[in-house]
Design a protein around this nucleic acid. Structure first.
Lengths: 282, 282
DNA sequence: TCAGCTGGAGAACGCTGTTCATCAAGATAT
DNA sequence: ATATCTTGATGAACAGCGTTCTCCAGCTGA
């Protein structure tokens, strides 16, 4: 790049052999470069995304990962928006909705939610991308259909079933987005630069946040103080399951009969840790 | 020095009297301009936001609304991020959390949610800004405290109360964000340019979306087809209330006693339209 | 051997957020 | 009344962004 060949005037410091320009290689080895394609561009975009975050996702950087000029990308992708949309549709690769089983509808929704969260966390800032792409794209129509099928098969009223998928998806996206916001704030506030300690992972940020909440004036923020330990946890897995369970219970309350009210998975999901539900408080 | 005087070479087209420069006015009228301040900058930023959307929110445009140069803004606002954060904190101006009333906790949450949605819809793309600012800022700590107070006073277990506020806020943000995404897609697809019809409002977009869903192959998307009319509605108010009710029911299911289960507001909220809850389906 | 095609190169455009040295005008001190 | 300091805005500049344009090396088929 910045070759300055064929530009005889003012070559301030001549690069090696500016004349006789021939592209670096291309013809030497057989598969010098494996030919640019949409998929390779999307792969490179994920590389940049994971390394630099969404704000650092730049067409120029994507091109440099592929060792290619920016304009070359535009032969395969019409715009950056389209590239991001291609990344978005990757979210749903390789997940086929299960056939609805009315007896296991809550478990099926849990599996779907866990899969979604895992996928969102596989790439940095992926929740931000997903959040900006909520409405129906053709690629995710089967997923919407599958979720609707589960809810209707379970016996939910139509008006509730129509809303349920939206709520679940919004919850997943929003939860992961919030997770990543904390992570970003953590790395921004010198989490990595601090010498010793817990390897700069989210641990110390949570610790700092809890300390901050605990330092609030007790007369103004009694609840925030006493719930700090529950709101800011080292691992968010449990919090995710709790929120999911709240929504599932809300949905279940619209079931005509009270079946699945005493089912297996209503309480803690996979990891049934102690501490009964309805405890002290008040 | 940089001002073209004392720079005799290449003044290609001389602007009117480049020498003898005197600032336009400033000394003429007494209050020619009311002195730049953070609040005025935030006001101007909202003007730009409403007119151009979040992607068009630009420091230069904000400056031009105030008839001021860009760099003048940076004397009062340290960065664009800080300006956006100032806009975000405006969301919570003028709303004081009510004292928790255990008998009316669901109604109090509904009021809070409706207020939040109204505020988010007052300015274009405000949900996008709010979504990017989820975690605790000092300004919204009292709100978090107030919501926690309502949930704990209602008798919710601590682990549930700690999660409830997050779920509600995420739901509000996500819902309004999705609304605005549809609106954007509507205006992008020539909603305003179409001559006749429903004044380019969200109506025709919803109509088009319903038609699209209804045109899907019946064997592959039976649920999407039959629920299209419920998922895509002209006014989202009802959908918002349904989703809110699902969450509230889920929360209520964690109450020790079954009080507030047959309370007044459990079903439809304020507008009790017909169509009973548990209907056909299956 | 030669035309045509194709995929990538490189430079350019207009825009962005941010910084810098500069300077008019009011406030203050002598 | 004069000289100094402070304030607050200026306009030019910088690096980087998405996007577009022209151009050419090298492969293809006749």
């Amino acid at each position: 790049m910045t070759d300055a060949a064929a530009d005889p005037d003012t070559p301030p410091v001549p690069p090696p052999s500016p004349w006789n320009r021939t592209r670096p290689a291309r013809t030497s080895g057989a598969a010098a470069r494996p030919a640019l394609t949409r998929d390779r561009i999307v792969d490179a975009a994920f590389t940049v995304l994971d390394r630099e975050g969404y704000d650092g996702l730049t067409m120029r950087r994507v091109a440099s990962v592929l060792q290619v000029t920016v304009s070359a990308l535009y032969a395969h992708v019409s715009s950056k928006d389209e590239l991001v949309e291609l990344m978005y549709t990757r979210l749903f690769d390789g997940f086929t909705m299960p056939a609805p089983d009315p007896e296991r509808w809550q478990e099926q929704v849990r599996e779907y939610a866990h899969f979604g969260r895992r996928r969102l966390r596989e790439h940095r800032d992926m929740a931000r991308i997903s959040m900006a792409h909520a409405p129906f794209t053709a690629e995710l129509l089967p997923h919407v259909e599958g979720v609707l099928a589960i809810f209707r098969a379970a016996g939910l009223p139509d008006r509730i079933a129509a809303e349920a998928g939206d709520i679940i998806c919004t919850y997943i996206d929003g939860f992961v987005l919030e997770e990543s916001l904390w992570q970003d704030r953590m790395t921004a506030h010198g989490g990595d630069g601090s010498a010793g300690g817990a390897s700069g992972d989210g641990r110390d940020m949570a610790e700092r946040m809890r300390n901050y909440l605990a330092s609030l004036p007790a007369e103004d923020f009694p609840h925030l103080r006493s719930l700090a330990g529950l709101m800011i946890t080292d691992s968010s897995d449990e919090r995710f399951d709790i929120g999911l369970e709240i929504i599932l219970r809300g949905l279940a309350s619209y079931l005509p009969d009270e079946r699945s009210k005493g089912g297996k998975g209503i309480k803690g999901g996979e990891n049934g840790r102690g501490e009964d539900d309805r405890n002290d408080t008040a």
